[in-house]
Design a protein around this nucleic acid. Structure first.
Length: 499
RNA sequence: CGCGGGGUAGAGCAGCCCGGCAGCUCGUCAGGCUCAUAACCUGAAGGUCGACCGUUCAAAUCGGUCCCCCGCAACCA
């Protein structure tokens, strides 16, 4: 038995959850469910990042205390996860004592190890934004009231680990994925790496975790947030649990936060003497139509709306099927409907109707038995038999869309097989043969449903329930002859284009 | 010359590392079937594989030059 520990980023609580949050979290859930189906022991951690300047500002703007603001927003995330059928193992919030303790422990440990020092931080400061901005941001001309500012701060000796990190990435080809992101990071690391300023003076920004060795400062939010990946599995507090789960199998994240994870987080782990996660996977963004999703543009698609109209499983399916590995994906209602109709209604759902209708008509709803197989039957059987092997390979590669497509190939093949075998004709002259055909088709459908259960837990459960095949494996022959099919409605009713 | 990714049928993508009939899904058109959710199946049309030059018996694939798109360029999250 293997262990599988997956994380999402902990989401920043300055706004409501959107499709981007939903995507990463569903992906983590799908991977977890798939691994659990294989018999792996799984741990799935998600949560919220609650410190930092933007939270402080958002809270202030609403007239809330910071903690009250976080407590108010947290349920918006947990409720959405519930609605999306997310089965996380733990939900961590960085304001929780268990996390705060770990952050302070780590700060002290890094300090004691000599990887922390105080120095003047000098950079461009935007008075309007109340924060330091980067050279790039300054050059963009979008910030007014910019001036050079010096400030005493604490620094983490990140530069000390630069070469070690480069060597590590080179020695571990799968560490940062997809490959072009890995190249990007190696390119980034060709420049001299500076040390990381990990403190913020309370005078300027007080909403954070106090440095154990300097009470005038709180911890820079990334240094705080990244530690959730270990504080969430018992680092320091529960060594046995921690040993069991760390290092993580995969950190899932958006491409915008790849540097923080591959550079800050890795060097922090080096300093702590802990192993690095096995994989850091940066996925693309959801574009709404042709434009980047953005709160300011007000074009954020609320996944909740889709769920209410079309069901949670079809939303999960769409997001998993449409995002190509590591690339950006597009969302429009038209794309959603197209995908839903062609894959779920016409191919998958309709196949269920075909076989259950035929079994109802010719076998009084009892699943027929499988006679000897013809070569045509064998083509289907062979593809269905080792489908789980191909699907697993894709899942291991995080190619969920390919895994799904592989299953749909079987579904399409079976639709063609039925057409060719025409059991509705055969039944009139050779009922046993018609039974075999229907067994082959239904068994294939069962296997497809089992393999799609990680993506669509509810609908596939319905299918397996109809077939009397709950808790079966994706192996040929587990469909029980003689079982009476349950009556059902259309699994995925077609969405008719209108308006 | 900062680093990196990409330009393949109307759309979205695979193939490129390891040259050898240009493939998949959707869309379009024509047939078929009539068990099924106007679903399903079969077939067809549609591509100078960004441009040019080179290597080779053979180039989407290897090398070179150019054009065009995109990402990264950290210490806001």
């Amino acid at each position: 038995m293997n262990k599988f520990y997956v994380t999402t980023p902990i989401y920043y609580v300055n706004d409501k959850p959107h499709i981007g949050h939903a995507y990463t979290t569903i992906l983590a859930d799908v991977l977890t469910r798939f691994h659990r189906g294989l018999g792996d022991e799984t741990f799935f951690l998600t949560g919220l990042d609650e410190h930092g300047q933007k939270v402080q500002q958002a809270a202030l703007a609403r007239g809330f205390s910071e903690q009250a603001h976080c407590d108010d927003l947290a349920p918006r995330f947990t409720e959405l996860w519930k609605k999306l059928g997310i089965g996380y193992s733990d939900f961590i919030r960085t304001t929780e004592p268990r996390h705060v303790k770990v952050v302070q422990y780590v700060l002290q440990k890094v300090y004691d190890a000599g990887d922390m020092y105080a120095d003047e931080y000098e950079g461009w400061y935007s008075v309007a934004e109340e924060r330091f901005i980067t050279e790039t941001e300054k050059d963009s001309g979008q910030f007014r009231d910019v001036k050079k500012l010096k400030e005493r701060n604490w620094f983490f000796k990140m530069s000390k680990y630069q070469q070690r990190l480069i060597d590590y990435i080179n020695d571990h080809p799968g560490f940062i994925a997809p490959e072009h992101r890995r190249n990007e990071m190696l390119g980034f690391l060709k420049q001299p790496l500076g040390d990381l300023c990990i403190s913020r003076p309370k005078a300027r920004m007080s909403w954070g975790i106090e440095l154990p060795f300097d009470k005038e400062y709180v911890t820079y939010v990334w240094f705080d947030a990244l530690l959730n990946y270990i504080s969430g599995v018992g680092y320091v507090s529960d060594e046995a649990t921690f040993k069991k789960w760390w290092p993580a199998s995969v950190h899932l994240l958006g491409k915008d936060i790849l540097t923080t994870h591959s550079v800050y987080w890795s060097t922090m782990l080096f300093s702590l003497g802990l192993p690095l996660p096995e994989k850091i996977f940066a996925h693309g963004w959801w574009l709404i139509g042709e434009t980047k999703m953005s709160k300011s543009l007000g074009n954020v698609v609320n996944p909740l709306d889709l769920i209410d109209c079309y069901g949670v499983d079809s939303v999960r399916y769409f997001l998993m099927r449409e995002m190509m590995l590591g690339q950006d994906a597009h969302f429009t209602p038209e794309l959603f409907i197209k995908r839903y109709n062609s894959d779920l209604a016409n191919d998958f759902g309709n196949l269920l109707n075909r076989v259950s209708g035929l079994i109802g008509k010719y076998f009084e709803k009892n699943i027929p038995s499988q006679g000897s197989l013809t070569s045509d039957d064998r083509v289907v059987e062979v593809l269905a038999c080792d489908l789980h092997v191909r699907v697993k390979a894709y899942i291991d590669d995080l190619s969920v869309q390919e895994a799904i497509e592989e299953v749909l190939k079987l579904v399409r093949l079976v639709n063609g097989y039925l057409e060719k075998q025409a059991p509705w004709k055969v039944a009139k002259t050779d009922l046993a043969r018609a039974g075999t055909i229907l067994y082959v088709a239904t068994e294939s459908l069962r296997i497809a449903a089992v393999l799609l259960s990680a993506v669509m837990p509810e609908k596939t459960k319905t299918v397996l329930d109809i077939l009397g095949a709950q808790n079966t494996q994706p192996l040929w022959g587990q469909l029980t002859s003689g079982v009476t099919l349950k009556t059902h409605d259309a699994l995925f009713p077609r969405i008719e284009e209108e308006k």
